[in-house]
Design a protein around this nucleic acid. Structure first.
Lengths: 273, 273
DNA sequence: CGGACTATTTGATATGCATCAAGAAGTCAT
DNA sequence: ATGACTTCTTGATGCATATCAAATAGTCCG
């Protein structure tokens, strides 16, 4: 059940979506295809290299070409920029093409709670449907580009393409199940378990996008990790140090290398200590 | 933003849904309409007294009669019984007609996390869509009756009735936003704030169903409240006692009377102390 | 009605993490 | 490159809540 946290049921594990997470930096990470100069040609869903992760999953080529019309435009967001903010009118969903986001809610008294981190192929904006306005902030943690999908279009097409309808439902359901897992994490786990769960989840999702299982670059600060995991940045830092001392990971600032994947899993599973 | 916890945007506040929460016990609570011997006549969506809270919201009478066919059967669940369990194949959604449920996930090592409490008019089972099997347990906290809505039918009808499609989307989005609020609560709030938020949320939802704003009966144990709020049952008990000492509420076992609604709200909002 | 159970309350003590603090490392802009 | 800033690390201390324990109240069932 708790796998809900670390597993993000995505079937395909070897796809070309490399520019998604890292745009230029980490050449160290495996890169199995040459980087293309994107935006140099019109990118449609039907030839997007994220199509197996994103909305077009499981559609016929015919249906997919209909989908191309759904993406009204694409939009770039600079690092630190808001894709949308709490209170903004909701009209569209966004699919991440490149870059990395956080979503967060803010209480009246200013406490910020990071509710998730999103990477290429993931859909943002679902929070806005219920009240026709957004209920969280979506902030780019690195320069990013998203596909803008007017929700009206999504709904119209969903009525025509049952497969798409089902997929939209699955995406929303997945988000509900993910949040269930986070609730478990926040309510029941100790700092080490939380951080282990967090790392395993990121690794799993990055792996589904073609990245190494043993290395990752954190796009967020210790404070943002802490907010997501319900702990203070100092505790995040200390826990990283502890994992490092125990030979489980190697920490160089935002670069994390996994030395002992099994031990990490053991910590995640272990209340048995 | 945090209102997401205490507010459950339901427009109508005065409807006849009294048998929903209390079946026979608490005659003390206001009851503005005589109780009818239910099941004595065929109950359809079109004459269900929950129709303003449940799936038919905003539909024309024509559309609503289509909806009637969507509810395949109704199903009774005894107190303590499982409506569905984690791992069960997912085929249908459920709308609660009467009674009160909890949903919970269980980790491998047996830790249980209550992920929500559901009352009349609310929809259960959305967690199952993503993987075609349920990802949590749904357990009746009192004898209950639900409408069984095969998800295929829901999807079929959603394609015919845009208003229904939109409503299904809103229900899922509302659940996502609710869980965002719970994450904020678990990660950032102290015990008193959590319990205040919890009580205010229950009161708000019960009020939308025609109940008093100043009295409620807890259908769950201290332990279940604690699980939901990420605290131990002893802490729940102590916090109730503290609220009682402070003259904010009156606690008689599962019966709670709100003496100072404003103070409760102040605690909920207050990090300012 | 009485016995066995479960749920709740309350007290005493322990502990994991927060908080406060200060320095180190890294990043950015001019 | 240099100074200002942000981010991160590490240590010392305190506190909110967990844990352990025991008594009380309530509930179920033969």
């Amino acid at each position: 059940m708790l796998n809900a946290i670390a597993a993000d049921e995505i079937a395909t594990h070897e796809i070309n979506a490399h520019e998604a997470y890292n745009q230029s930096q980490d050449q160290r990470l495996p890169r199995t295809s040459p980087m293309q100069a994107e935006s140099s040609f019109k990118v449609a869903c039907s030839n997007c290299n994220l199509r197996e992760l994103c909305l077009p999953i499981g559609l016929s080529t015919d249906e997919m070409s209909k989908l191309d019309g759904m993406v009204a435009t694409r939009k770039k967001v600079k690092q630190g920029g808001h894709l949308f903010s709490s209170g903004d009118p909701f009209t569209t969903l966004y699919a991440i093409r490149t870059g990395f986001f956080k979503t967060c809610v803010v209480s009246e008294d200013g406490r910020e709670q990071v509710t998730g981190f999103q990477m290429a192929g993931e859909i943002m904006g679902l929070d806005g449907i219920v009240s026709d306005k957004h209920n969280c902030n979506a902030i780019a943690l690195e320069d990013a580009e998203v596909c803008v999908m007017p929700f009206n279009h999504v709904e119209d097409l969903s009525r025509e393409i049952p497969m798409l309808q089902r997929h939209v439902h699955k995406i929303m359901s997945r988000e509900i199940v993910r949040e269930n897992g986070v609730m478990m994490l926040l309510a029941n786990m100790r700092a080490e378990e939380r951080l282990a769960a967090f790392l395993l989840n990121l690794l799993q999702r990055l792996h589904a996008r073609g990245y190494s299982k043993s290395e990752l670059i954190l796009r967020m600060t210790r404070e943002e990790i802490g907010s997501y995991l319900g702990m203070k940045l100092e505790t995040v830092s200390r826990t990283f140090s502890k994992f490092s001392d125990d030979g489980i990971i190697e920490v160089k600032q935002k670069n994390i290398r996994i030395l002992d994947h099994e031990k990490l899993k053991a910590i995640f599973n272990a209340s048995t200590c």
